[in-house]
Design a protein around this nucleic acid. Structure first.
Lengths: 198, 198
DNA sequence: GGCAATAATATGACCGGTCGTCTCGAATGT
DNA sequence: ACATTCGAGACGACCGGTCATATTATTGCC
C-alpha cells in the first residue's frame, strides 16, 4: 500500500508522543496510559503495535535520533567547504532550540542512558546503536575538517567525536539543573573553538 | 546524646540504601516499599523522617556526594606538591571502583540530573548544590595545579573544572551502555593529559 | 523518688490511583 | 468462511501517601 495503514499511523503517533513524554518525564516516570490517552489510542491496542513497554522504549530511541542525524547531515552537506563551520552551525541551531524549550528535556539519549542504560538490555542496545550512528556522523564531519586543515591531525576523528559527544551530554545535564545555556555554549567553545584547533 | 538516636540510625540507613537503589534503578524506578523492606523499617516511619519521596531524594543526593568530596579532598592534601597528579590519582581510583562494579550505576548525580533534574524543584536545588560543591573542589585543585605550573593559565580553573565534570558525566553515560571503562579513561587522558597542559 | 498526666513519636493497615500486561469477543480483510 | 487484527476492560501488583492507634518520653506534682 502506498498510503500508510492505520496501524502505521498509530505506531508513528505513539512513537512521536513517546519521544515527547519520555523526554519530559523519563522512562519509569511515563505511563503507557498517559501516552495512549494523549494520542487517543485505546490501551488494548498498544500490545498489538509494540510487544512491551521496553520494546516501545527501544523504538522511541531510534525515532528520536533520526531527525538529529538528518539535521547534522544537512549542515555538513550545506557547508561542504567548511566542515568545522557546519558542525558549529549545527550545534548553534541545537542551542537555539534548547533555549526555546527553556532548557527542559535535554537529550533523550543522555537521559535514558542514565536511567535505564544498564537495566534494560533491549534499550541498551538501541541506545548503543543510536549513539554510534550519531558519533559516526560527527566523526566523518571532523575527519573532513581535518582534511580541510581546520582541525588538528594528532588526534583521531573518532576520539574527538567521542569527546564532543560526551562533553555535550554532560553539558546538557548541567544545563537542565542550571536552567542556562552557558554549559552547552562553553562546551562548543572549549572543544570546537580551542581543543580541536590545529 | 552522644550515641545516635534510633531515629538517626534509621535515617542514615534509609539514606544509604536510597543511594544504592536510586543508583541502580533510578528515582521513579525505585519504590519506597522496596527501600523500606531492604532495611526493615516500617513504612509509617518514613514519613516521620522525611516528608515525602521528593525530600528523601534530595537528601539522598547530598548523602551520595559527601564521600566523593572527602575522597578528592584527601587526594589533594596527600599530593600537596602535585595537585594535578592528585586529581589524576583520584580519578584513577574512581575508574578502578567503576570497573569493580562492572560499569553499573555510574554517577547518581548524572543519572538524576537527566531523570528529574527539570521536574522536581527540590531535587534540582539539591543537585545544584551537590554539583557546585564538587565543582568548586575540583576548581581549587586545578587552581593549585596552575600555581604549580602543571596546568595552563589561559583558561580559568572554574572553566576547566566545569569541562572536566561535564565530560566525566558524559563519559560515564557512555560507559554504562558500552560496559567498558574506555570512555572514562579517554576522558581523563584527553583533558588532564592533554587539553589542560600548559 | 514514685507516679499519673501529657506530649511526642512509631507503626502498619489502608487509601485511591496507576502501573504494565493479558484475555477474549468483536471487527476487519481476503 | 476463515485468519488476522483490534480493542474494551479486567488483572493483580504496586505506587506515594495518610491516619488512627499503640508505644515511648517527658513533664509536673506529691
Amino acid at each position: 500500500m502506498l498510503t500508510p495503514t492505520k496501524k502505521e499511523i498509530n505506531r508513528e503517533s505513539l512513537l512521536s508522543q513517546g519521544v515527547t513524554m519520555l523526554m519530559e518525564q523519563g522512562y519509569h516516570g511515563t505511563g503507557l496510559q498517559q501516552v495512549l490517552a494523549a494520542v487517543n489510542i485505546p490501551k488494548g491496542s498498544f500490545y498489538n503495535y509494540f510487544g512491551s513497554k521496553e520494546n516501545f522504549g527501544a523504538e522511541v530511541i531510534q525515532h528520536y535520533i533520526d531527525p538529529f542525524i538528518t539535521q547534522l547531515t544537512a549542515h555538513l552537506q550545506q557547508s561542504d567547504k567548511d566542515a568545522l563551520g557546519g558542525i558549529q552551525r549545527y550545534f548553534d541551531e541545537l542551542i537555539a532550540e534548547l533555549e526555546k524549550n527553556r532548557f527542559k528535556g535535554g537529550c533523550l539519549l543522555g537521559n535514558l542512558m542514565g536511567e535505564i542504560g544498564d537495566t534494560s538490555d533491549v534499550c541498551q542496545k538501541s541506545l548503543q546503536s543510536a549513539v554510534n550512528r550519531y558519533r559516526d556522523l560527527l566523526k566523518s564531519g571532523l575527519a573532513k575538517a581535518q582534511q580541510q586543515g581546520t582541525v588538528r591531525l594528532d588526534k583521531s576523528a573518532e576520539e574527538m567525536a567521542d569527546l564532543l559527544l560526551n562533553t555535550w551530554q554532560g553539558a546538557l545535564l548541567r544545563m537542565k539543573i542550571e536552567k542556562s545555556s552557558a554549559p552547552v555554549k562553553q562546551c562548543c567553545q572549549d572543544l570546537l573553538g580551542d581543543f580541536f584547533k590545529p
